[in-house]
Design a binder for these strands. Structure first.
Length: 96
DNA sequence: AGCGTGACATATA
DNA sequence: GTATATGCCACGC
């Protein structure tokens, strides 16, 4: 069955919206959940992620994306996410 | 149709 | 620990 781009984007937004407060996930993890590559996830968020808590999505090493990295770390810290030296402590807050 | 670019990931040095 | 290279996939020119 072909994956429609709009459907995939919707699935990504859905997963991101399901991330509980104080937790974070990675592009790769979401990509596996929805059945796409990590770049597709980043593409979806950069394109229309304004309707979901994109700041709960970080890289595989816990670092945040360039254009929003300050904002992201600030939001996560406000949510109670343990951050160290600019990188999220995924070992504790990684989701699922 | 081909090429360059990017909110990534993994492997290797 | 960081830096570099390769793979992936979709989008715009």
């Amino acid at each position: 069955m072909p994956l429609d781009p709009a459907d995939v984007d919707e699935a990504v937004f859905d997963v991101v919206d399901q991330i509980p407060a104080g937790r974070v996930s990675t592009y790769g993890a979401i990509g596996e959940l929805v059945g796409i590559g990590p770049r597709r996830v980043a593409r979806a968020l950069s394109s229309g992620g304004g309707a979901v808590p994109w700041y709960r999505v970080v890289r595989a090493d816990g670092s945040a994306a360039e254009p929003v990295r300050v904002r992201q770390l600030e939001m996560l810290a406000a949510e109670g996410v343990p951050v160290r030296d600019g990188r999220v402590v995924l070992s504790t807050v990684r989701w699922p």
